[in-house]
Each structure stands twice: as structure tokens, then as C-alpha cells.
């Protein structure tokens, strides 16, 4: 029996099926209680000289976005508060990192 007919006979769909998520959909699965003050700030001047840009790839929340003029655009709202960005950052002083005000920020439900 060929694979296709076996699948047809057993009502099995082809290959794996799960909905691919856009990054926004992915982030929307987590709850963030957003404070009006940014708990992390990024010094754009330091970023302009940075060639590695580890943060852009490493940040699990994808909060570091390179801009066309060579800078980095940073959003703090959907931050997991993990610390990856300041750990991988090569430019001393580029990232000022604190926790958000108590009660704000990421709230995990089923982790």
C-alpha cells in the first residue's frame, strides 16, 4: 500500500498540521501588564557603532529592531524580563536594565 493511499484510508492528513503563528500572535499569548515608564532603556548612540547586534537575534520577545539609519528601535512593553539583552550586549552602557515597577510586566499563567 502506498503512503498516500494508507493516509487516505486512515483519514490522516498530510504531514504535520499546526497553525504557524505570526510573532504578534505569539506574543499575544502572554499577558503583559504594561507600566507607563520603560524599565529598560537603550542608548541609541552606542548601538550605532555596534556591529554584532546580538540583541536583535537573541531577544526572545523580538523587542530590538534595527532601523534604516543604523540605530536600534526598542520597545519595552512586551518584555519577558529575562535579562538576555544586557547579557549578550557588547557595548558597555548601551542597555540600562531594571525590573518594572512591582505588579507590572509579564504575568505568566501556564508556564
Amino acid at each position: 500500500m502506498s503512503l498516500e493511499s494508507l493516509r487516505a484510508a486512515n483519514n490522516i492528513e498530510r504531514d504535520t498540521t499546526w497553525a504557524e503563528l505570526s510573532f504578534q500572535e505569539r506574543i499575544d499569548t502572554a499577558e503583559f501588564r504594561i507600566h507607563e515608564r520603560a524599565h529598560i532603556t537603550v542608548n541609541g548612540d552606542s548601538c550605532r557603532g555596534c556591529t554584532t547586534r546580538e540583541c536583535v537575534v537573541a531577544c526572545p520577545a523580538n523587542l530590538f529592531v534595527p532601523t534604516s539609519d543604523g540605530g536600534i528601535l526598542f520597545n519595552y512593553e512586551n518584555c519577558f524580563e529575562c535579562g538576555t539583552c544586557y547579557m549578550v550586549c557588547n557595548e558597555a552602557g548601551a542597555i540600562t536594565w531594571t525590573y518594572p515597577e512591582g505588579g507590572y510586566g509579564i504575568v505568566f499563567h501556564r508556564t
Binding site: L21, A30, A61, C82
Partner: peptide
């Protein structure tokens, strides 16, 4: 998730929470 040994385990599952930690 796409690895042939993993995919059949999670087929059809929906992501309900994404998370990260050091």
C-alpha cells in the same frame, strides 16, 4: 517542532503561551 521525531507528538496543538527565562 518540525523534526520528524517530534512533529507527530504535537500535531494539531495550538500555542497558548509563549515564555522565556534565563
Amino acid at each position: 517542532k518540525r523534526h520528524p521525531a517530534i512533529a507527530p507528538l504535537i500535531e494539531g496543538a495550538e500555542v497558548i503561551e509563549y515564555s522565556a527565562h534565563l
